[in-house]
Amino acid sequence: MPNVMIRVKENGNLLFYIAKKDQEEEIRTVECDSDSEWGGEIELTDGSRYYIDPMTPRPTFPTTLRFKRL
């Protein structure tokens, strides 16, 4: 259950940052990604997948969230 900081990257994509691992990765896909809802299964560019219960309303980034590793 890593604590992950998500911020908007310069190119507009979301950056998935796990401080403990110094891992910076772009988010490739988000299961629920709309103006009202955000979350579900998330896939990063390196292929690893994480899960978070979908949130309403969509959180404002940057923010720190707790994900489950799949």
Partner: peptide, 9 residues
């Protein structure tokens, strides 16, 4: 970078 990230958040 830690404090910069914190201030951004």
């Amino acid at each position: 970078n830690y404090i910069s990230r914190h201030m951004e958040e």
